[in-house]
Amino acid sequence: MRARPHRLNATIAWLFMIGSACFVIGSVPAYANATGGWVDGITYVVGSVFFTGASYLQLVQAQSPAATAVDEVTQHDPARVRLWGWLPHDRSWLAAAIQFPGTVFFNVSTIAALTHNATAAESDRYVWRPDLYGSVLFLVSSVFAVLAVSRRFFSFEPRSFPWRIAWVNLLGSVLFMASAIAGYVMPTTDALVSTRLAVAGTFWGAVCFLVGAALMFPTWRREVASATAATSA
């Protein structure tokens, strides 16, 4: 299979941006009140589907060197991409490979959340657990992404676009984790641990992912320009 590298990167960015935007919108109380719980739930489902599509394409990109090692000319040429790969020693690949099943867990949790009148036990089993598992995988993936672009985990490289993306996504993953923990339904009261934290964590976490996805465009342009300069030298 072949794909134009710049189109593949742009598609990944747009899918992540749309998915993030759905989670941002869905977590706004005014939107939920105006549209109703079912429409709000569908918004999350749609967002999770875009996340999954973007995540899989990012995995394909991570395991296809021909899709990233490009200059101004070759970024427009169809390059061979690998739909399946095994690169456990590549931190970028590990980040993408761990992130993908995380998005699948979000698919499960958002679809399960559409069920009405679920008991606390059912909500925790079919909604909260997949959400928690997905959040854990996102967090682990984000750590590997930081390690992939930094000399050291706590190195400070604000001029690097990949460094910015990795850290803003890590912040988003932390916020999603906080939201997942706060979303546990306590069996004794049928109430969430913290509704406010669950909503805020989802909203601001999705905002972080939206920013991270938008930064993929200038990151791509800078890396292509650097490759072009190196080729011309």
Rank of each mutant, 00 (worst) to 15 (best):
H76S: 11
T43Q: 02
R196L: 04
L139W: 14
E122G: 13
G201S: 06
Q58T: 00
S179H: 10
T188P: 02
A67C: 12
G85K: 01
I12R: 03
L210N: 10
W14D: 01
F217R: 00
L132H: 11
D40I: 03
T52K: 00
T35I: 13
G172H: 13
S141Y: 05
L197W: 15
L147I: 08
Y133A: 15
L210M: 14
Q58L: 01
A213M: 04
H76C: 05
A206S: 11
E72H: 03
A3M: 04
A54G: 06
V108T: 07
Y184Q: 13
R164V: 12
V136R: 14
S123T: 11
H116W: 06
P29L: 03
Q63D: 02
W163C: 02
A229E: 12
G205H: 08
L59T: 08
G212V: 01
A191Q: 15
V136H: 14
A178C: 15
T103K: 07
F105Y: 08
F23D: 09
A121V: 10
Y56H: 03
A148Y: 10
D131W: 07
Q99P: 09
F23L: 12
P5E: 00
V149E: 01
L139C: 13
D40W: 03
F138P: 05
Y31M: 03
G212N: 03
A191Y: 14
I12T: 02
S141T: 06
R151H: 10
A225K: 05
W220D: 02
V143L: 12
L210C: 10
F105K: 04
F105A: 12
N33Y: 11
A225W: 04
